[in-house]
């Protein structure tokens, strides 16, 4: 087991109702338990606002955790592994994460210097090697970020993440801003790196078709909770949770023509519905305004159904 996330919670302070009252809590992540094996890709999908990015950030301590534990390999002390650089994160917009006044070669060598990965005289060699790894010409290391196209910038982002020999990379919507023709190049690159170096990914994306191509397992997040988790082909061929079913039917029917829909009112994490967060939109629990009682009052647990497949639903 590479990464083990247990009952992770991240609450943000929300609006105050009165001047001196306690602020309400926005439960961005509300008790998430996931694990990632070595060399595995876990796809994390959900609508916007479901907490996908917050979960990624909470794992690398970019946002403070309210509760729960994250353990990485056999490190017990969280501070030690979070400084080791063994978990890296790549974001959607690489231009925003690169310093515009620094050549890309320098940007990467900074990482090498900070973590003392290679002796000083070998830094440039290593930077060039990293460029080759992501299929960029090593001659480009003296260029500035603005001189690259979107796809090339994302490659630089990947090269920088690779600089510290990570074992897990959290990819937060890394291909969402790219054109389809370039998107496929980046996915292929990520897959090849996984085969070559055994890197595990937590692949966060709203695009189910992309996740399908790269993930071994998929976790579906709704309003800060995992509603279903399981092997990619199983989830795609037979989604069990009504939310997963709806999500995938919209995605696949965009390939065939007609569309069936659930209501689009996404639950508000500041004031989530009681019981199962999904019940107001759920086609099973909602019988024209009358809800099944268990769904509307009791939190469903994430139960194992068969061979690693977990679903949080009373009706299955």
């Amino acid at each position: 087991m590479l990464l083990n996330v247990r009952d992770l919670k991240t609450y943000f302070p929300g609006r105050k109702q009165y001047l001196f009252s306690k602020p309400e809590q926005i439960k961005a992540i509300d008790g998430v338990t996931i694990s990632i094996e070595e060399g595995e890709t876990l796809g994390l999908v959900g609508e916007s606002g479901s907490g996908k990015s917050t979960l990624g950030k909470a794992i690398v301590n970019l946002v403070t955790k309210t509760g729960g534990t994250v353990t990485f390999k056999d490190f017990t002390d969280e501070k030690r592994w979070s400084n080791s650089g063994k978990i890296q994160m790549i974001f959607q917009d690489p231009l925003a994460s690169l310093n515009p006044r620094m050549t890309v070669g320098n940007a990467i060598s900074e990482v090498l210097k900070y973590h003392r990965i290679v002796p000083k005289y070998k830094i440039m060699l290593r930077v060039k090697a990293l460029f080759r790894m992501v299929e960029l010409s090593p001659d480009l290391i003296f260029n500035y970020p603005h001189q690259f196209s979107g796809g090339q910038r994302q490659r630089i982002g990947i090269a920088r993440a690779l600089a510290v020999n990570p074992e897990l990379i959290i990819c937060d919507e890394v291909v969402s801003a790219l054109d389809v023709s370039v998107q496929a190049q980046i996915i292929n690159l990520l897959k090849r790196l996984q085969v070559d170096q055994g890197i595990a990914y937590l692949f966060i994306s709203h695009d189910l078709a992309v996740v399908r191509q790269i993930a071994h397992r998929i976790a579906v997040l709704y309003c800060g909770r995992i509603v279903e988790i399981g092997r990619t082909d199983e989830i795609i061929s037979s989604p069990m949770h009504p939310y997963t079913q709806a999500l995938f039917s919209v995605a696949s029917e965009s390939n065939s023509g007609s569309m069936s829909m659930i209501s689009t009112e996404v639950a508000n994490p500041a004031n989530p519905p009681d019981g199962c967060h999904f019940h107001p939109r759920c086609p099973i629990a909602n019988n024209s305004g009358n809800f099944i009682e268990a769904c509307a009052s009791i939190d469903p647990d994430l139960n194992e159904k068969s061979g690693g497949r977990m679903v949080a639903c009373h009706q299955i």
Partner: peptide
């Protein structure tokens, strides 16, 4: 990318 089939290497331009 297609949701109904998985490809080892995606075709790209």
């Amino acid at each position: 990318p297609r949701i109904d089939e998985k490809m080892e290497i995606l075709p790209s331009i």
